[in-house]
Design a protein around this nucleic acid. Structure first.
Lengths: 104, 104
DNA sequence: TTTATATTTCGATATATGTCGAAGTTTAGC
DNA sequence: GCTAAACTTCGACATATATCGAAATATAAA
């Protein structure tokens, strides 16, 4: 674990902060199950297009979901792309690897 | 990643929150380098006994370090044990595994 | 028993965060 | 152009967090 001496503290604490809110963590987990990392969630596949759907049944408003999605994006955990009225989102796979390495 | 549907949201968000503060993350990282996970940092080994030392050169007071250590312990990330005047602390290895699994 | 060292607890305070609802923006379709 | 759907931005507010310094506690040592 000598690699830890060179860890980018700011980068990692930002990522952990993004995952520290239960609602945000739930959204993140929904993304990991609705699409494989590196794959966009489109309206084309059987699973629903992500953004609005991601917020369903979480007990928060759309504006709150939007805010959380922005935080996850800012932390580099997810990618976003508008497609028509909707906004697709998907897990950033490199960041996931970074985090996996961190703990192993 | 289907395991994510059964993730204990509260448990994980608490762990991520503990690591989301830069000072706390630094303390955690110092622990991972000063002792192997599952091994106590004692005054016996060459490396200094952990608790007070952990807070050095972080730019915060002792009371702040104490508070952060308590948070890390509450999140299940570290273990504590008083030994004389000092308090030893070490990484909780099971939690580390839990987190490693989470991201891989 | 007095003193020193290590750590914790307390109260205060400034700042950050999560959430809402209302209003704004973007795109699609009539 | 008008309306609806999906999403974002804004301002407000309540709550949580990080930090400090002072006082308290625990242990060791003189």
């Amino acid at each position: 674990m000598s690699k830890f001496s060179t860890v980018n503290i700011k980068r990692f604490s930002t990522m952990f902060k993004a995952l520290s809110n239960p609602t945000r963590l739930r959204i993140f987990l929904r993304l990991t199950s609705c699409c494989e990392p590196g794959t966009k969630c489109t309206a084309d596949n059987d699973l629903t297009s992500c953004i609005g759907e991601l917020g369903k049944n979480l007990g928060v408003t759309a504006s709150t979901v939007s805010h959380h999605i922005k935080e996850l994006h800012h932390a580099g955990l997810i990618e976003l792309q508008r497609k028509g009225q909707k906004v697709e989102c998907w897990i950033e796979p490199e960041t996931l690897h970074l985090l996996a390495d961190f703990f192993s």
